[in-house]
């Protein structure tokens, strides 16, 4: 039996309700230990994502020794031992492998692979509209072309999107800008637009007579004022 598949199919049921709040710290530790196999799975019972790391014994050492090494490392970790990590879940499936299971809420912790998949369609749409509208007057009304710098900034912003925010539609604008649109109805929508200058311009309509607009600088994370307005749009 393939060990990895076996663990994948059975160990989800072994997970306790313990939440490992300092997931990042734990992951760093495990990366230091160079786990042989790891995987991410969605727990269908509660929608939480699980990371499963499978440690296999190095030549000349036992699984027990490796587990001991992990615990030593975690106890000395500079952020302190991650809460609950003393309860590393493991099931002895073979003599030389231990699955270590971390459970966390996927809304807080982006995973590069899943993020890539999530954003692929949107980035592709940005690429398509950038190519299609790369010449002046693309709309017949003297629109400016969508430049490469605008496309790049749009992609950068996409990759910053918080995971709890739904994906927007993208559109070219006559100013040579790319607009991200979150839409509920024609009088209930929010637009954030990039121009390649490190600024997001936004405008939102939350029913007739209720509106807001402004600008925000793009730093290393998605602009907070923009995410605030998007969440506001989708509030009940």
């Amino acid at each position: 039996m393939n060990l990895y598949n076996y663990i994948k199919s059975t160990s989800l049921h072994d997970v306790t309700s313990t939440t490992f709040e300092e997931y990042h710290a734990a992951t760093v530790c495990l990366q230091d230990l160079n786990p042989r196999q790891r995987g991410f799975f969605l727990d269908p019972t509660n929608g939480l994502r699980l990371e499963i790391n499978i440690l296999q014994a190095e030549h000349g050492s036992s699984i027990r020794q490796e587990l001991s090494a992990i615990n030593d490392l975690l106890s000395n970790y500079r952020y302190g031992a991650p809460k609950g990590l003393g309860k590393i879940a493991f099931s002895q499936t073979t003599a030389d492998a231990i699955p270590i299971i971390f459970r966390y809420d996927s809304s807080n912790i982006p995973d590069p692979l899943l993020e890539h998949r999530r954003f692929a369609g949107l980035i592709s749409a940005v690429d398509e509209l950038s190519m299609e509208n790369s010449l002046p007057n693309w709309d017949g009304y003297e629109a400016k072309p969508i430049l490469r710098s605008v496309r790049d900034e749009a992609v950068r912003l996409i990759k910053m999107l918080p995971s709890d925010i739904p994906l927007p539609e993208v559109s070219p604008e006559p100013l040579g800008t790319i607009a991200f649109e979150w839409y509920k109805a024609k009088d209930n929508l929010f637009i954030a637009s990039v121009s390649g200058k490190g600024i997001v311009e936004y405008a939102g309509l939350y029913g007739i007579g209720n509106k807001d607009y402004g600008t925000a600088r793009i730093e290393n994370t998605f602009p907070k004022i923009v995410s605030y307005h998007i969440r506001r749009l989708f509030e009940d």
Binding site: E173, L189, S193, E201, A203, G204, T215
Partner: peptide
Amino acid sequence: NSAKTRMIALELAA
């Protein structure tokens, strides 16, 4: 003021 222009455009489109 392109931000305000966009806001007006939202209102017109609505």
